Simulated scan of single mutants.
Amino acid sequence: MSNLSRDDVAHVAMLARIQLEDHELDRLAGQLDQIVDWVGQVNEIAAADVPPMSHPLPLANVSREDEVRPSLAQEQALANAPAAQDGRFGVPRILDEE
């Protein structure tokens, strides 16, 4: 089906910013030609009734449900904080308010 030349491979290598030697261009021309042929075979096999998909397996959300559970009281959470202010953690200001 496809006949990639040495110049085609050199052009693709230039676009990818890959420097190839002459012997590499000859070897890769044959290999890339085979890859293009295989992709062509896949396109021939793909049926029109098969919808395109992003993943071969269905994805499911694995997050747990939110539920209220016992936790620290505000005083306990702030007990070891380096700085606390108005019942919250105190942190250094990173933005200037104008």
Rank of each mutant, 00 (worst) to 15 (best):
M1Q: 09
S2K: 09
S2G: 05
S2L: 11
S2R: 11
N3Y: 06
L4S: 01
L4G: 01
R6I: 11
D7V: 10
D7Q: 11
D7F: 06
D8Y: 01
D8I: 00
V9G: 00
A10V: 08
H11T: 12
V12R: 09
V12I: 15
A13Q: 00
A13D: 00
M14S: 15
L15M: 06
A16P: 03
A16D: 03
R17I: 04
R17W: 04
I18T: 14
I18W: 06
Q19F: 03
Q19S: 13
Q19R: 13
L20D: 01
L20C: 02
L20G: 01
E21R: 08
E21I: 04
D22F: 03
D22E: 12
D22G: 08
H23N: 12
L25I: 01
L25Q: 00
L25P: 00
D26G: 05
R27M: 13
R27H: 13
L28Y: 03
G30Q: 04
G30R: 04
G30V: 05
D33S: 06
D33I: 05
D33Y: 02
Q34S: 12
I35A: 14
I35H: 09
V36H: 03
D37W: 12
D37A: 15
W38R: 13
W38Q: 13
W38G: 06
V39M: 10
G40Q: 03
Q41P: 02
N43D: 12
N43W: 08
I45C: 07
A46D: 06
A47E: 12
D49H: 13
P51K: 05
P51E: 14
P52K: 03
P52S: 04
M53R: 14
S54N: 13
P56G: 09
P56D: 05
P58R: 08
P58T: 03
L59Y: 13
L59E: 10
A60Q: 10
A60L: 11
N61P: 06
V62E: 09
S63Q: 14
R64M: 08
R64I: 06
R64G: 14
E65W: 04
D66C: 10
E67I: 04
V68I: 14
R69D: 06
P70N: 06
P70H: 10
S71D: 14
L72R: 04
A73R: 09
A73I: 05
Q74A: 14
Q74N: 11
E75W: 02
E75M: 05
Q76E: 04
Q76K: 04
A77P: 02
A77K: 12
L78D: 00
L78P: 00
L78K: 01
A79V: 11
A79P: 04
A79C: 08
A79G: 04
N80M: 12
N80G: 12
A81G: 00
A81F: 00
A81T: 00
A81C: 00
A81Y: 01
P82F: 07
A83F: 08
A83E: 12
A84C: 03
Q85K: 07
D86V: 02
G87N: 01
R88P: 03
V91E: 09
V91Y: 07
I94W: 04
I94S: 09
L95W: 10
L95H: 13
L95C: 10
L95M: 05
L95R: 15
L95Q: 08
